[in-house]
Design a protein around this nucleic acid. Structure first.
Lengths: 129, 129
DNA sequence: CTTGACCTTCCCGTGACTGGAACCCCCATT
DNA sequence: AATGGGGGTTCCAGTCACGGGAAGGTCAAG
């Protein structure tokens, strides 16, 4: 399979696939003409990566998870540890965003949104006084 | 005031303040020795920027908001529009993160986290079969 | 033989900074 | 007068995970 087919199968842009090769996440073979040739195991890896990325894991996490995936003697505890660390990051981000949403929501509600210049949003950003 | 004092007053790193000058958000004067000299209005602007950034507004949004802040003839509707667009971004991000959290949460719960290799997290990433 | 769809590499840009190097300035102490 | 330390300055590189686009090689069809 060439990169275009792989891209269609996995949903990953060709650019991304090349990038993953660059950083050593996938190692497709090469045809005589220089084209990348992907075996089914490469496609499988790329699907794995796509799903892990969709869950928000960083590339480095993906590297770790891939290594664990391929290590038959892994302990599930190691996987869970990575997942839980990532979970904590996600929850921290959600908390931040919720705080922003709440503050911003109040300000938006308080703003008339008409053609007059008075605006609680700007007042707040300007320091309220 | 020198940049260090401004940094203390605003809580913004000196690096950030220099960056904001670089991209034209703030225009401090210069002393003869080349040091930046910040007037109170500069400090006020920086506080404004700090608060806007803390609410997650992009730098370009901040630029827009600053312009509106300084325009006495603004319409609050214009401010509200920017704020609502940002709000939509925040909510979209929260939705994404919530979906990740839910999926990841189920997987984590299903994972024994012991020294055996069986792991639903990896199974899911690998395509479940 | 040419067209057009692929593929290749390479380099730059993204956003909002952060780190670090190399250097200047000012004040106080020895 | 030299030195030390704590300011300040510029500029360059790196972050993260790609995306855009240029310049060029390859391949199957008409």
């Amino acid at each position: 399979m060439n990169i275009g087919d792989v891209s269609n199968q996995t949903g990953l842009p060709a650019k991304t696939i090349r990038y993953y090769e660059d950083i050593g996440l996938v190692k497709p073979l090469r045809d005589d003409n220089g084209y990348r040739r992907f075996r089914s195991q490469d496609v499988h890896k790329l699907n794995f990566l796509g799903r892990a990325r969709a869950l928000g894991f960083t590339i480095e996490d993906c590297r770790t998870l891939m290594a664990l995936y391929e290590d038959e003697t892994r302990a599930s505890a190691d996987v869970k540890k990575v997942a839980r660390a990532h979970m904590a990051q996600i929850e921290a981000k959600i908390a931040d965003l919720n705080a922003m949403r709440d503050t911003l929501g109040h300000l938006i509600d308080a703003c008339a949104g008409d053609d007059r210049p008075d605006c609680p949003i700007l007042q707040d950003l300007g320091g309220k006084t």
